[in-house]
C-alpha cells in the first residue's frame, strides 16, 4: 500500500516543510529549492497523479505535464487572487499552491489506493559512480562559467562618472533647493561645489570628499529675488574646468508660441 503512494506522501511532507521554511522568512538556497518544487512541480505532479491514477504516464511524460500544469495552475490562481482583496502576496500564494497540492495529493492517494492497475512508483535512473562524478563536475563547471560571466560584468572597464543634481523647492519648504552629488567614479574624488545666482556666489564647498558609491546632499537657501541658481562642480585634481553643471530657473514663464 505505502509503495503505491510513497511519492505522494513525500510531496505532502515536503509541501508542509516548504510552508514552514517560507513563512520563517529565511533567505537562502534551501528556501529557493522548496519554492521551486512548490511552484513548478508539486501542484501539477499531484494533479496528474490524481487524474491518471489508474494509467500513469512514463516519468518523462509525467514531468512535462507536472511542470506545464503547475505553471498553468499558478497562472490561473494568480488571476483568481487578483480579484480577491488580498491580492498576489507571499501568504496568498502559499495558501493557493499548497491547497492545490494537498487537495490533489489526497485525491490521488484515494484513487491510487483503490486502483487495481497501479502497483508502485518506479524511478529507474541507474547512475554509476563515474557518471555521478561527471555530473557533479558538470555542475561545478557551470558554476565556474556563471562566476566568470558575473566577474566579467563586475570588472567591466566602464569610465566612471559623477552625478550632480539640483532640485527645485518642494511645496512644504518653498525657500530651499536641494543639491546633491554622487561619486560613481572608480576612485576616491575630492570635489569643489560653487552655487551662484548668476552673478554672486551663494554658497561654496571647497572639499567634498567622496569614496566610490558615496553620496552628499545639502540645502540651498533661496531668496525671493533669485531668478536663477547655478551649481557648478569641479574636481580638485582638475580645478580649472567645470566638471558638472546644473541650474534652476525660478519664476519661469512659458515662452510658447
Amino acid at each position: 500500500m505505502t509503495r503505491k503512494i510513497a511519492d505522494l506522501l513525500l510531496v505532502i511532507a515536503l509541501t508542509l516543510i516548504a510552508i514552514v521554511v517560507i513563512l520563517s522568512g529565511m533567505q537562502n538556497i534551501v528556501r529557493v529549492l522548496f519554492a521551486t518544487t512548490l511552484v513548478f512541480v508539486f501542484p501539477g505532479y499531484t494533479l496528474v497523479a490524481a487524474m491518471f491514477a489508474h494509467h500513469p504516464f512514463r516519468m518523462e511524460t509525467h514531468l512535462v505535464f507536472a511542470i506545464a500544469l503547475s505553471i498553468a495552475m499558478a497562472v490561473l490562481s494568480g488571476l483568481f487572487l487578483h480579484f480577491m482583496p488580498w491580492g498576489l502576496r507571499t501568504e496568498s500564494w502559499l495558501v493557493a499552491l499548497a491547497s492545490i497540492t494537498l487537495f490533489a495529493s489526497a485525491l490521488a492517494i484515494i484513487r491510487r489506493s483503490f486502483s487495481p492497475y497501479f502497483s508502485s512508483v518506479r524511478l529507474h535512473l541507474n547512475f554509476t559512480w563515474p557518471q555521478l562524478a561527471m555530473s557533479g563536475l558538470t555542475v561545478l563547471l557551470v558554476f565556474i562559467a556563471i562566476g566568470l560571466a558575473r566577474n566579467g560584468i563586475v570588472n567591466e572597464t566602464q569610465a566612471g562618472f559623477t552625478q550632480l543634481w539640483l532640485l527645485p523647492p518642494a511645496s512644504d519648504s518653498p525657500d530651499t533647493a536641494q543639491v546633491g552629488i554622487r561619486n560613481e567614479e572608480t576612485t576616491f574624488v575630492s570635489y569643489r561645489l560653487v552655487v551662484s545666482d548668476g552673478g554672486s556666489t551663494l554658497q561654496n564647498w571647497d572639499a567634498i570628499e567622496l569614496a566610490p558609491g558615496e553620496e552628499w546632499q545639502n540645502q540651498i537657501d533661496i531668496q525671493p529675488s533669485d531668478d536663477n541658481i547655478n551649481a557648478q562642480l569641479y574636481r580638485n585634481d582638475s580645478p580649472a574646468s567645470v566638471y558638472r553643471s546644473v541650474s534652476l530657473a525660478l519664476n519661469g514663464e512659458s515662452s510658447g508660441p
Binding site: 550632480l164 543634481w165 532640485l167 527645485p168 560613481e184 536663477n228 553643471s245 546644473v246 534652476l248 519661469g252
Partner: peptide
Amino acid sequence: PTISRIFDS
C-alpha cells in the same frame, strides 16, 4: 533660460 537642468552625470 526658463528651463532648469536639474541633473547632470
